[in-house]
Simulated scan of single mutants.
Amino acid sequence: MKLVLDANLSYRLVKKITSEFPDCVHITRTGLPIPAEDVAIWQWAKINSCIIVTNDDDYYNLANTYGFPPKVVLLRMGNQSSTGVMNTLLKHRDEIQQLDQSNEVGLLELF
């Protein structure tokens, strides 16, 4: 499964989670302009078969408007440290993998 971390998450997370999510990239490493528009990130993730990991509610609206792909992991934890986000992603790895493999679900909300 391939993850793309949105700009609202630290680029340092990539190193912290690559042992469990080896195909992970931060949005700043995709070649998109900085800052990238949400719709541009959506399109990039769709073309590159990535799951968007974000805490931006705008992706909830994009998922409801356009459906999937791409799929979205929406972090509903408020502002967290990189370590807190890392722990949440690692704790829910199996659920993220199920999302990746699902033909029926396109959004996973983590609290």
Score class of each variant (00 low, 15 high):
residue 9 L to C: 08
residue 9 L to E: 01
residue 10 S to L: 08
residue 11 Y to C: 06
residue 12 R to M: 13
residue 14 V to T: 13
residue 17 I to D: 13
residue 18 T to W: 08
residue 20 E to W: 04
residue 21 F to I: 06
residue 21 F to E: 02
residue 22 P to R: 13
residue 25 V to N: 04
residue 27 I to S: 06
residue 28 T to L: 06
residue 30 T to R: 09
residue 32 L to T: 06
residue 32 L to Y: 00
residue 34 I to D: 11
residue 35 P to N: 12
residue 35 P to Y: 04
residue 35 P to E: 02
residue 37 E to G: 09
residue 39 V to K: 14
residue 40 A to M: 11
residue 41 I to D: 11
residue 42 W to P: 09
residue 42 W to M: 13
residue 43 Q to M: 07
residue 43 Q to I: 08
residue 45 A to S: 14
residue 46 K to V: 02
residue 46 K to Q: 10
residue 47 I to G: 01
residue 48 N to H: 15
residue 48 N to A: 05
residue 48 N to D: 08
residue 49 S to V: 00
residue 50 C to F: 00
residue 50 C to G: 07
residue 51 I to A: 02
residue 53 V to I: 15
residue 54 T to W: 02
residue 54 T to P: 11
residue 54 T to V: 08
residue 55 N to Y: 01
residue 56 D to F: 04
residue 56 D to E: 12
residue 57 D to C: 08
residue 57 D to W: 06
residue 58 D to A: 01
residue 58 D to F: 00
residue 59 Y to N: 08
residue 59 Y to V: 05
residue 60 Y to A: 02
residue 61 N to C: 09
residue 62 L to N: 04
residue 63 A to M: 08
residue 64 N to L: 14
residue 66 Y to I: 10
residue 66 Y to Q: 10
residue 67 G to W: 03
residue 68 F to W: 02
residue 71 K to M: 11
residue 71 K to E: 09
residue 73 V to Q: 12
residue 73 V to E: 07
residue 73 V to L: 14
residue 74 L to E: 11
residue 76 R to T: 04
residue 76 R to D: 14
residue 77 M to W: 06
